[in-house]
Nucleic acid binder design. Structure first.
Length: 297
DNA sequence: AGGATTTGACCGTC
DNA sequence: GACGGTCAAATCCT
């Protein structure tokens, strides 16, 4: 029986092959048209095929361990497992005994964002701690993914007001979401965004733009009136699937799909390597950049 | 009642 | 020993 890594590699290669074929098909279709552009329907079909391959590749990438993984090549978020190898010492003991089996973050890939309000980042978070930080005027708030225990999602974030500019909140993300909420996130790109290079996602319609009123995650630093973090920073519908591309909407440059969310999510996912590639609202061809990453293995 | 937040304590790292 | 990250009991909210 093949080892998992080998199987995965084969799956990747097959997906890439399909991806490549879809690309060629697109060229064929375009060439078959006099003006070099395919019919909208054909174009849409090709897009959907490409999206399917892309999502599969992305899924595969997200669901893998860091070994034998494009994550390594792509410098995808990885948990500091190597560093924490001794953590296994903690796993066989009881929860009570595990207490204190904590590691200070070090050399872990992070992404940071500052915004005027707590960020709607498309995930559900639960606050698990607050800490006064030395020389910092405002406490740091610690959040973990709500799905930490039910899905083993290791994503965490820290939110702290910016001392120099208390209007701003600095959010630091650690780890990738591996949770999978399979509710259709209806992700779209925002080709109109000024930060075209930021590959962020937007969720169709309705989730509210966060405001201080809605998302007062700061507690003790903010007296009384605000005790809770915003009920949900997000609609309960997103997760690693957030990174999936909706074939309906993706790459649709029509402004009607542009939601106000862009401004709040915006460069949230800037550092999402493979996701970046996949969601870059640049011309469709850019999506094939994934190949250069994946073939790097 | 169940889920989320608060907060003091624990413990690894520096 | 100080600091920072996490745990978990107590508390709060819906």
């Amino acid at each position: 029986m093949d080892n998992p890594g080998s199987s995965r590699k084969k799956i990747f290669e097959e997906l890439l092959r399909g991806h490549d074929c879809a690309k060629k098909l697109r060229s064929v279709i375009n060439e078959s048209c006099e003006d070099g552009t395919a019919t909208p329907f054909a174009e849409q079909l090709v897009k959907e095929v490409l999206m399917s391959f892309t999502n599969s590749l992305l899924f595969l990438n997200n669901s893998t361990s860091e070994s034998h993984d494009v994550s390594n090549v792509l410098q995808v978020w990885d948990s500091p497992k190597s560093e924490d190898s001794q953590e296994s010492n903690c796993k066989s003991i009881t929860v009570k005994e595990r207490r204190g089996c904590y590691k200070r973050r070090r050399n872990e890939q992070t992404r940071e964002k500052e915004s005027e309000a707590p960020i709607e980042d498309g995930h559900q978070w639960r606050k698990y701690g607050q800490k006064e930080i030395l020389h910092a005027k405002y406490p740091r708030n610690y959040y973990r993914c709500t799905h930490k225990f039910d899905q083993g999602c290791q994503a965490t974030k820290q939110v702290q007001r910016v001392q120099e500019d208390p209007i701003l909140f600095k959010t630091t993300y650690y780890g990738l979401h591996t949770c999978k909420n399979l509710v259709n996130p209806e992700i779209i790109l925002d080709p109109m965004s000024p930060c075209a290079s930021s590959k962020f996602l937007s969720f169709d319609n309705s989730f509210p733009t966060p405001s201080n009123q809605d998302c007062p995650f700061f507690s003790s630093s903010f007296p009384s009136s605000v005790k809770r973090e915003c009920k949900d920073e997000v609609p309960p519908s997103t997760s690693s699937n957030d990174y999936l591309i909706s074939s309906d909407l993706t790459f649709d440059s029509s402004p009607r799909h542009v939601t106000t969310l862009s401004s709040t999510l915006d460069s949230e996912y800037k550092s999402l390597d493979i996701s970046d590639v996949l969601y870059d609202p640049a011309p469709l061809d850019d999506i094939f950049e994934i190949e250069s990453f994946l073939k790097f293995r």
